[in-house]
Computed example of a mutant assay.
Amino acid sequence: MTPTIAEALAATPHGALEDIAKAAGTTPLAVLYALPAGEVSAFPGRLMVEVLDEMADWGEITLVVNTGPVILEAKAPLQGGSVAQGMYNFKGKPIGGHLKIDACARVAFVRRKLFGTETRSVQFYDTAGGCMFKVYLGRDAKRQMLPGQIAAFDALEARLRETAA
């Protein structure tokens, strides 16, 4: 019998949302919405460009794309982008590519333990409930999240909450 989302979360509370979703037979977005209070703030996907542009000033981050059998990570600063033909086009290297803007349904600010380590990330979800990609805050040599990025994350989340209210 397939566990409920709550049961799958209880079994692996610090696991990847994609793994929990697979166990529960649902989408990562459904799992995101089931996280405990205070772990997530979700906003409309139309804010994707604004969020990515602001994150360009955060310094080195870790961009993660988790397709299930493949988890790709890139550690580098986001360098902003431009919008053309319905796409957000990353400017820089090594993180480059093109994101279809209207495919993004939700932008989520997530605070949770992942495999036992405190994390903060901005996650971008598509219209089918899948996670397009995640941007985790950078870490110093002692594996601590960078205070400047924590402050920027908190400030952007607070500003979006105020404008959404």
Rank of each mutant, 00 (worst) to 15 (best):
S82A: 12
E18V: 05
G97Y: 09
F133I: 03
L17C: 03
L160S: 00
G97S: 13
D102Y: 09
D53Q: 14
V83I: 13
M145K: 05
K93T: 14
A141K: 15
R111L: 05
K22N: 10
I150R: 03
G59H: 08
A74E: 13
K22S: 11
M48G: 03
G38I: 10
M145R: 07
P3I: 09
G148K: 06
E73R: 15
L137Q: 01
D102E: 15
A21Y: 01
D140Y: 11
Q79N: 15
D19M: 02
N66K: 08
F90P: 01
R159G: 08
A11N: 10
A108W: 00
V64F: 00
A30G: 08
K93M: 14
H14R: 02
G92H: 09
P147V: 08
A11Y: 04
E162M: 11
L17F: 03
G130V: 04
G116E: 11
L146G: 01
G45T: 09
V51F: 06
Q144A: 15
G45L: 09
D53G: 06
R143Y: 10
K134I: 06
G86R: 09
A165K: 14
V110T: 09
G25V: 11
S121Q: 02
G92M: 12
A10G: 13
R106Q: 14
I20T: 05
G81P: 04
G38Q: 12
A152V: 02
F133P: 00
D19C: 03
G130L: 09
T117G: 07
P36L: 13
D140P: 06
P147K: 05
K91Q: 13
T127A: 15
A164M: 12
A10K: 12
A6G: 08
R111W: 06
A74V: 15
R159V: 08
T163M: 10
P69T: 13
I150C: 02
F109H: 04
E54A: 14
G15V: 01
F90L: 14
A151S: 14
V31C: 06
A108D: 02
